[in-house]
Amino acid sequence: MPQHTFILNGQQVTVDVEDDVRLLWVLRDVLGVTGPKYGCGLGVCQACTSHINGKAFNPCSVPVGDLQPTDRVTTIEGLPATVGRDLHPMQEAWLQFDVPQCGYCQPGQIMAAVAKVLQARAAGRQLGDTDYDEIRNICRCGTYYRIREAIAAAENQF
């Protein structure tokens, strides 16, 4: 069985699994990292959103064979370490506004929010309504408004 090596939350990992298995299942079913959630497996719901080399992506839509040994994959579990803290400021804002309801979508929401802020910052601007409208993550509990409040509060905190 092919071996795949990449960096997961700061640690190098190697897994034995077929090339075409999507990374979401490698994380959840093989490595037992369950922060990224399944909501569709179609790159639609964004519940699985994690980071690759600092950018948001859907591990449900990436065959593990596409990863390079130098690729840095960060799941919600590894997010705080990217800023050297116990909680990322985005997570703290989520707590401050008591965003989660069932919580199922929230790891993906937070990972998307962090990337969205960094994306706007790289373009030299603050987030605007258009940026929020580009966040495609489903929250079936309907926490969208508090998500906006939390992102706005955290935007300049990291």
Partner: peptide
Amino acid sequence: QNRIDALDAVTGRKQFAMD
């Protein structure tokens, strides 16, 4: 009051059936 399970939810530690 904030939810007692909020910290687990935002850190990915909250356990659902598939976890």
